[in-house]
Computed example of a mutant assay.
Amino acid sequence: MLIEGTVGRAVVVFGIDEDPGPELTFARGVTLYAAGSDADPPDDAGPIGVAGQGDAGPAALAFAARHPERVDRLALIATPIPDDLELDLSTVTVKTLLLFGAKDLATGSTHGRWWQQRLPDARLEMNPQGGPDLLGPMWKRVLSHLAPSCRR
């Protein structure tokens, strides 16, 4: 756990070691967890929002697919098209935010559109100034999607 919240909502992020925006996370009142690919949902959390950054995006997807009764929101940030994905994406039906940077040569709009076409409830947002590291600069947007209406 990176920060303990007060609102009974957890946000699990794959691909981070520290809180990308401590002040914003604190203001939302969520409990923030950094997770590895074999993570289980926290026992003490209510609904869970899940995010995956970059190459950790498929781990976030797999987590959401394994725990549909707990995960109600998903965000993929600059996640490349996978070479091999052992998951039927049509089964991931949670509301999904796809964030990609227009200036990211490795995972720009082509990758974002690929995910959008395969995830049933996905919204693609392109950051015109964004490069590959979008999580920190876009943390407020990610939290507003993963923890809507949550405030400390």
Rank of each mutant, 00 (worst) to 15 (best):
M1I: 07
L2P: 04
L2C: 04
I3W: 12
I3H: 14
E4V: 14
G5H: 00
G5D: 02
G5F: 02
T6C: 14
T6W: 10
T6Q: 15
G8K: 01
G8F: 05
R9P: 00
A10C: 14
A10D: 04
V11S: 03
V12M: 01
V12G: 04
V13N: 01
V13I: 08
D17C: 11
E18F: 07
D19W: 03
D19N: 12
P20H: 05
P20L: 03
T25K: 00
T25E: 07
F26C: 12
R28C: 07
G29L: 00
G29H: 03
V30F: 02
T31N: 06
T31E: 08
L32R: 06
L32V: 01
A34I: 09
A34P: 00
A35S: 02
A35N: 08
A35V: 01
G36R: 15
G36L: 14
A39T: 04
P41C: 04
P42K: 00
D44L: 06
A45F: 01
G46C: 00
P47W: 09
I48N: 00
I48A: 03
G49A: 01
Q53D: 15
D55R: 15
A56W: 06
P58G: 08
A59V: 01
A60T: 06
L61R: 08
L61V: 11
L61F: 09
A62R: 12
F63R: 06
A65D: 09
R66V: 04
R66W: 00
H67N: 15
V71F: 01
L74D: 13
L74W: 13
A75G: 07
A78D: 06
A78V: 08
T79C: 03
P80T: 09
I81S: 09
P82T: 06
D83T: 14
D83E: 14
D84M: 10
D84C: 10
L87P: 10
L87Y: 08
D88M: 11
D88P: 10
L89Y: 06
S90I: 05
T91H: 00
T91Y: 06
K95D: 15
L98G: 07
F100E: 13
F100K: 11
G101I: 02
A102K: 15
K103S: 13
K103E: 15
L105N: 13
L105R: 15
A106M: 14
G108C: 10
G108V: 04
G108Q: 09
S109E: 15
T110P: 12
H111A: 15
R113Y: 09
Q116W: 09
Q116C: 10
R118K: 09
P120Y: 06
A122M: 05
A122I: 07
L124E: 05
M126H: 09
N127S: 11
N127M: 12
P128V: 05
Q129A: 13
G130Q: 00
G131L: 09
D133R: 13
L135P: 00
G136L: 06
P137A: 10
M138R: 11
W139K: 08
W139C: 03
K140G: 13
K140M: 10
R141Q: 15
V142F: 01
L143C: 02
S144P: 01
H145E: 03
S149E: 12
C150K: 06
R151W: 13
R152W: 13
R152S: 14
